[in-house]
Design a protein around this nucleic acid. Structure first.
Lengths: 149, 149
DNA sequence: ACATTTTATCTCACGAGATAAGATAAATAT
DNA sequence: ATATTTATCTTATCTCGTGAGATAAAATGT
């Protein structure tokens, strides 16, 4: 079906993609004035909001002690705030500080998002669906080898 | 050309891919019994072998002091060894310990590589070239926003 | 040939941040 | 009511990165 030459080229480009992705995330964190653990957590918070400190620990694999530190720092720079859960006073709900998030984070991503959007809009629906399926398969393989113990 | 629906789906999947990639690399490092900085360095060493300690510092952006620590740890677990450059005795050449590398690292990646290979071999050359071009464009955008200051 | 400067790596003190164990306080179970 | 479990925080300790400076070798100038 395919030549091994193209498989090798693509493998190499996917490897480059890994590196580029990791460096991109470090750069974003640096621009936000936070470390990359905090950035990762902020990302998890944005996606799973609202959530508790313990849930964040589970989702990130950090200890609860480390999460306390992460929240202290993110709260200090104003990206999130803590709120005691009225239902269960032991629990601490993590809330995004929307104002600050929109003022600092969104502009940072918006030009990147715009560029990605432009890139993607060069493709028609059939092509996009093809790429979506490819990326999904890659994600499945990555996850399989991340979870495997 | 395309619907924004598919663009949004793909954007989401690419985001998931970022997360999966970062977690995958952490998992690999954990399985190798090293931290992720050391893993990153090992990766750079594998790709650029042979190289000196100073070159590794430049390529990774670490200080020379940090590189000393990285090499101490990688040497201790037997993935690399130092060799004084006979031409210039100040220089320290970094060499992979092939035996150990092959025994520990390659098997770890080989099942992953096999799975990726199988995935990719489902595509024909035309499709592979299409994906290669897509990934290259993504890499360009990522790099652009990493470097931009 | 000798002194100076540059280059390459290592050492050390310090700080950030992660872990593990345990403290605290609230909810749940007996 | 008391004991147990659950959720978060605190503290001591460890790892690792930085920055400044030490050390030693090579390159350069006189």
């Amino acid at each position: 079906m395919s030549t091994s030459k193209n498989i090798n080229i693509l493998t190499e480009e996917l490897r480059n993609n890994s590196t580029a992705t990791i460096l991109f995330h470090q750069a974003i964190a640096a621009k936000l004035g936070i470390n990359s653990t905090d950035h990762k957590c902020l990302d998890v918070i944005m996606k799973n909001q609202p959530l508790t400190a313990g849930q964040l620990a589970t989702l990130t694999g950090l200890t609860t002690g480390a999460v306390t530190g992460v929240l202290d720092r993110l709260e200090k720079v104003g990206y999130i705030f803590r709120e005691q859960d009225p239902e269960d006073k032991r629990r601490v709900n993590i809330c995004m500080n929307q104002e600050n998030a929109e003022k600092n984070i969104i502009p940072l991503f918006s030009s990147f998002a715009a560029e990605m959007n432009q890139l993607l809009s060069n493709y028609d629906d059939k092509e996009l669906e093809f790429i979506i399926e490819f990326i999904r398969q890659c994600n499945r393989v990555l996850k399989k080898f991340t979870e495997k113990r």
